[in-house]
Design a protein around this nucleic acid. Structure first.
Lengths: 343, 343
DNA sequence: GGCAATCCTCAAATCGGTTTAAAATCCGAG
DNA sequence: CTCGGATTTTAAACCGATTTGAGGATTGCC
């Protein structure tokens, strides 16, 4: 059923019906009510495509999520980020358009979205150092918000990020305070900006105590359970193994834990384990007492906030740039403890 | 840049340009080449909204993913399912439209998509017993594929499902063969069809060996780590605790494992642990040797297959219904072992 | 009752493509 | 040189909404 048919059914003109449903004031309340009820009854709903064409607004937000080709893997944080953002979109009547592209084709996907006008704005996920996407999006003029950030302070775009450097400095400091001197890091891939920041936080904390960060203790890989496992196993095989390990995510931490169990070691005893926790909904870090010592920050909340900022800047394109750096909370558990000398 | 401007730039009519880009044969190859090159050069791309309106095809597939309001959680299998499906969509030039709705509003979201014509087809996730969405979608006439299924055999819609009953029967049989008699089950929420099937598989295996399934041993909750933890902890607190636990997902299994460690028990020794593994990309169940004894089936592969079937039935609405029930593979690990009498 | 001021409704233009039907061009044959 | 048929190109209608500017109906006031 299209607008004309529906309006004929009601004995009204298309204009009046459109206005009644659109909430414009040029229509009597009584008429509006009649139209609304008839629409619900007959299941009439304005065609989204036609409305988009007429108004110039697609009423959709684009997300490009990269799928690592080698590992056929999608970062699990997307699920929670999208859950948060999607809630805000839905409330504002926006759809969410998702493009899954293989790692590296992201630029093309953003360009496509922008040129074809299929979205009103986008979120940039997983910014790299010197990320071309940001320049590209700025050229197209399409509003966007970055989850994370890139480069140093001089950014001229809206973003929401965790203070990754500080978070990892805190984790490292905590371990240093417990007497650890050889502290390993199981990091994500270093071309991602947040991974670099985390590594810097780790290195900075060590240097402040006069310890030279040992490159052999800093590994970098996709953030999977298996990668965490391998990082810990390799670390244990070193001539001079670490007494503590910091993992970049809860998932990696699980792998670290597995490697320790396999070696007959207990987290928090022979080797301490700390991690950064994105607070994924299905992986609560213990309800009452936390399972892992962790710095934590909800990626779901970040999704909500990014969506809010984006919708705001779509509504008001000349509004201010919003840049938020969130501090993460440090929670302590039994997986970190005083250093124990091994025989 | 719109079509008219672009075609004027080339000194051609809009029709010719549209045909050249659309690959229609009424255009000389030389002209087509010229148009293609100019489009790439000037970044012209047909407006998606206008094209959708003109052709009547939205070139988008809708997914409605429920977010549990209580737990603010999105099932992590969506990420992998969507990664698989998205790949197929992208290859065929389709977008993926996602609606995150709170549990229970799903029907409305599907209706909205169908009535507003914003998608050409949808995937139904997490079918319930007696699922209204299926009848609704059939009424709208929009093609759809169900991930999972509902009711018994007489279904008249396309679906891809794992043989959940058989999978859980196999897991239970494996534990029975090892001598276990009190086998607990940490299930998902029972209004979900797959959870009921799993429970039936478990019960059936027990009855075949003359054991009456103990309701106290079958728990049911959201499929989170915490739920797995609680299920195991509660089970251990029973007057007559189980010697084995079957978890409904890898994530739940992690919680089970945590409860056991906390109680000073080792999976596969005092208590055996088996689970169903969706083979999420970031949670490989051990690369070389599996971490958990598990029945496994890739949810990513299911996403790919569902997408293929859906696109097929969009291209050919009168094509056959496709119903696939996949068998899962049983992999053995050290988390299951012979029953040990506890003092 | 007449007139102005509101309030509501309408016809028509518009968004940017696709596609049908008609016109223009090209080619070789007669 | 002309004609017929094949090949390209074009003008115009259409998809289904929104929205402008104009006209029609109501109401209030004198």
């Amino acid at each position: 059923m299209n607008l004309r048919e529906f309006s004929e059914l009601l004995g009204l003109s298309p204009t009046t019906v459109s206005r009644a449903l659109g909430g414009y004031p040029e229509v009597r309340e009584e008429t509006r009510k009649r139209v609304r009820e008839a629409a619900a009854l007959h299941g009439y709903r304005p065609n989204r495509r036609a409305a988009a064409l007429a108004t110039g607004r697609a009423m959709a937000i684009g997300h490009v999520i990269p799928s690592s080709l080698n590992h056929e893997m999608v970062n699990p944080v997307f699920a929670d980020f999208i859950a948060g953002a999607g809630e805000i979109y839905a409330r504002a009547g926006y759809d969410m358009l998702i493009s899954v592209v293989s790692d590296g084709d992201e630029e093309g996907a953003y360009r496509k979205m922008a040129e074809a006008g299929s979205v009103d704005g986008t979120i940039v996920h997983g910014p790299r150092q010197e990320d071309k996407r940001i320049e590209l999006l700025r050229e197209t003029g399409i509003p966007f918000v970055v989850h994370g950030r890139t480069g140093e302070g001089d950014a001229e775009y809206s973003f929401v990020d965790v203070d990754n450097r500080r978070a990892f400095k805190k984790l490292t400091d905590h371990l240093l305070d417990l007497g650890h001197r050889r502290i390993a890091l199981a990091n994500g891939l270093l071309h991602l900006d947040f991974a670099r920041r985390r590594q810097e936080g780790w290195a900075e904390a060590l240097r402040k105590r006069g310890i030279d960060p040992d490159p052999a203790l800093a590994s970098s890989d996709e953030m999977t359970e298996q990668a965490g496992y391998l990082a810990m196993r390799n670390a244990l095989a070193l001539p001079n193994p670490p007494t503590a390990m910091i993992a970049c995510s809860y998932i990696m931490g699980l792998g670290v834990q597995r490697a320790l169990h396999e070696a007959g070691l207990t987290p928090g005893k022979e080797v301490s384990v700390a991690l950064h926790d994105d607070m994924l909904s299905y992986l609560s870090n213990g309800a009452t007492t936390p399972t892992f010592t962790a710095s934590r920050s909800s990626v779901r909340a970040a999704g909500i906030r990014c969506a809010e900022i984006l919708l705001q800047s779509i509504a008001n394109p000349n509004g201010p740039i919003v840049q938020e750096v969130w501090q993460s909370e440090l929670v302590l558990s039994t997986t970190t403890g005083p250093v124990v000398e091994r025989p």
